[in-house]
Design a protein around this nucleic acid. Sequence first.
DNA 1: CTGTTAGCGCTTTCAC
DNA 2: GTGAAAGCGCTAACAG
Lengths: 349, 349
Amino acid sequence: MAVTLADVAARARVSAATVSRVLSGNYPVAESTRTRVLRAVDELEYVVNGPASALAAATSDLVGVLVNDIADPFFGIIAGAVQAEMVTPAGESGRGGEKLAVICNTGGSPERELNYLTLLQRQRAAALVLTGGAVEHPDHAAAVAAKASRLAASGTRVVLCGRPPIEDATTLTFDNRGGARRLTEHLLTLGHRRIGYVAGPAERTTTRHRLEGHRAALTATGVEQDAERLTVHGLYDRASGYDATLELLRRDRTLTAIVAANDTIALGVCAALRDQGLRIPADVSVAGFDDLPFSADAVPALTTMRLPLHEAGARAGRLALGREPQPPGGVAMVRAELMARASTAPPRG
Amino acid sequence: MAVTLADVAARARVSAATVSRVLSGNYPVAESTRTRVLRAVDELEYVVNGPASALAAATSDLVGVLVNDIADPFFGIIAGAVQAEMVTPAGESGRGGEKLAVICNTGGSPERELNYLTLLQRQRAAALVLTGGAVEHPDHAAAVAAKASRLAASGTRVVLCGRPPIEDATTLTFDNRGGARRLTEHLLTLGHRRIGYVAGPAERTTTRHRLEGHRAALTATGVEQDAERLTVHGLYDRASGYDATLELLRRDRTLTAIVAANDTIALGVCAALRDQGLRIPADVSVAGFDDLPFSADAVPALTTMRLPLHEAGARAGRLALGREPQPPGGVAMVRAELMARASTAPPRG
DNA sequence: CTGTTAGCGCTTTCAC
DNA sequence: GTGAAAGCGCTAACAG
């Protein structure tokens, strides 16, 4: 099957080693030889055998990117940004940086996450980027940490983006707690006191941190008494937001605001409120989190906490390639910014 | 670096060959030996060296999935569905089907598409799924076709999902032309005659087919005279929809409906109309294409053509694995279904 | 600057 | 049912 290095070498009348050197560009080769080799490569339409090269060099050009749900733009944006960083910067020798960033969709399942980790370890991936909230089950957390350590030990760079730090990994955490707190403070400042909260799946770090920030704001203002009753958990999707809103209204028809754990949920919240004949924000204010592209276009435009997902992903990509210096302590925090828009207003009366 | 097959063999007191056989499960091995080997694997935490195995076996367990824009849920949904098909069906011997489906984001750039194709060829990918509209530049189309043929010749299964057929590849086309036609017919039936069209980038097959379908409907009704003037091209994103709408209104303030090349654009269209003080659908009807999850939640709910993206992606995945019979002629068409919702209504007056 | 020489870790005939 | 041995195609010392 297919033309090999040796074929190219024969054609260019040099040794295989020389061809290899020309191709990897990391070793001086006479200009004349180089062009001769390159021409042979072209004529033969030679394509390097990745596995063979990975085996010999004990490292591959694969970079794994794990995401919880690739159909969710939150992850799509991050993953796209990571991948965009993999292209060789102009002016580098063609081959060098041609990493293949591969996006793996865990669907939020711990088993599949571990499975992908093994698959990537098997491929001897050059680096790994784990994105999004982590599942908090202790066994699983330990398993992931162990795998990460083993990978790091074998030379794979591990970068975390949007989840809490673990040992042996560089981490970009999102300020979910602080952001959530500021968001709820915004609502409190507007005068809201009965605020519903639609949380994500219970066992995710992102879910917990955002909920904690929300509660912290309530507590600081002394209105935390009903917090438990006014919280409903669901998935990070639109349908959960819809259902949770109906449940919240059932529990307390008098609430004047609902905070959603993310923008996608917020969309469902809005839909449910409208279906119940409630106006936004006249009757109920709504806020989300993330500031996905559609949020500014929602009607009314959604108040939310903006997370610079693209920038974070790009930085994670550079860290994975070792193209950007480690943050102090290996951990950097990405801040969230309040985008106060039309979906929040002072409560009526 | 790391424990190898030989280590496992030593520990289990068998030969390397036997360990290999146990692991790949495609050869009879005595039960007692098998368990002994498996235990050794466990104790040593052995992980197969993918590159080595790929080299020796001349095939890898990588499956490439190319998408135009991973931040767009259209592609996220398809890619996620493809990837979900890669998991080993319950009851199979652990190792067998553990394919690694890797998602590659071309950003719609021909160079990057070709680049990924080469990267995947280099990795000796087991299969390839190309999704979404193709770029119509003749040189590029030829280059892609050539690469596809070469890949197919070397045993890589090539599957197309949502783009026109090429030789040596199994294809799932989307009925963009027919769908677009039916959508515009829906508007015509409602009584609209002055219909604006916001198209995607000019050189994409998807763009062209949808536009052709639209025009075909107009022509059949004899109202095609202004079609050219009432068409504006842009990207497949919200901002383009917004800008294009302003341009359309500038050209003809009397139009009563706008068809967008996809739902994301339609969102921008709606935003622009609202900003111009126009009501939907009272003043202007709006229609999209794809039926992405957010479309049903838009206000008003968006009339659109539903494409079964998840099903199509899943099927593409199975075809890539050879788990589903080839459609007759290697080409199957995925139909679009009209979802008539609140954003379209008869024109006023 | 270029060629020679060993492997990298696994799969796979081919014997036993 | 299991072992021995010969590569798969490439890289990386090491000479020259």
